[in-house]
Design a protein around this nucleic acid. Structure first.
Length: 258
DNA sequence: ATGACCGTTGGAAACGGA
């Protein structure tokens, strides 16, 4: 089972990239973040061999889960983070069940600037996600969670740690919440296979960040214990960042021996 | 060249992103 995640920064602008990439990678599932609009090209994706569950929102945010058309034992469980304010319209969460495994896709809040309510919202959302992941663990449900966490886990996950120290993505309060997920017994799938590499998933459009490799690793897959045992690989594909009119994020993929 | 962005909304320039 091959599961990928990609913040595409507008599905409308990136549809051709997604179809091209899936044609090469042939992932079974692809979690998408930042659809950025109510129009979701379900028909075009189905022509490319993928059905979908989409949670769109006007103008910003938006998540989806694409799955190969021949997969039948899949169902949408949640289109909203359980326990989070039901009146909040921000589309940041999707949870599906494939067989007995839950697959969660998230677009966690950015949280900048840190002296505003946006940072409080980030911490609150991440705290509610902790409660839900804890609940899944207590129920002994096998799951993987992937997406744009908007968290830089460690110094080696950014080009210039000093420059990021005060940012919402790297503040101690934020990283502490991310680590609380790890303390539930989850693993950062990428670090299972490469403990030391500096490998990024996001490069800003500005200031020549991509040619300078001034990036950050903020797109992650976390696996519950039995899913960690089943992990075969975790790869970050930098290539699409060099394509014409790219997203500022690149896809991450895990392979599981289920 | 020490940096000059990108996408959506709405129909210009503000906002969000990270």
């Amino acid at each position: 089972m091959k599961i990928s995640s990609w913040n595409v920064n507008s599905i409308k602008q990136r549809l051709d990239h997604v179809i091209k990439w899936l044609g090469e990678q042939k992932s079974d599932l692809l979690l998408l973040q930042e659809l950025k609009g109510m129009e979701f090209p379900a028909d075009a994706l189905e022509e490319a061999g993928y059905k979908s569950f989409a949670v769109p929102q006007k103008g910003r945010n938006g998540v989806a889960c694409l799955y190969k058309s021949d997969i039948t034992d899949i169902a949408l469980l949640h289109d909203h983070l359980p326990g989070h304010d039901p009146d909040d319209e921000q589309a940041r969460y999707i949870e599906v069940k494939i067989g007995d495994v839950h697959v969660i896709g998230i677009y966690a809040p950015n949280g900048n600037p840190v002296d505003t309510e946006k940072f409080d919202y980030k911490l609150s959302w991440m705290g509610t996600l902790y409660d839900h992941l804890k609940d899944l663990r207590e129920k002994r449900i096998d799951f993987v969670i992937g997406g744009d966490f908007n968290i830089i886990p460690e110094d080696k996950d950014c080009h210039d740690p000093a420059a990021w120290r005060g940012d919402a993505l790297f503040r101690p309060e934020s990283v502490s919440l991310y680590r609380s997920y790890i303390y539930l017994g989850l693993n950062d799938a990428y670090r299972i296979f490469d403990k030391s590499a500096e490998q990024y998933t996001f490069w800003d459009y500005q200031a020549g960040a991509w040619p300078r490799n001034n990036g950050i690793r903020i797109d992650h897959f976390l696996t519950s214990p039995r899913m960690t045992d089943a992990l075969l690989s975790c790869t970050i594909d930098k290539e699409p960042r060099g394509w014409d009119k790219p997203s500022d994020h690149v896809p991450v993929t895990i392979e599981l021996d289920l």
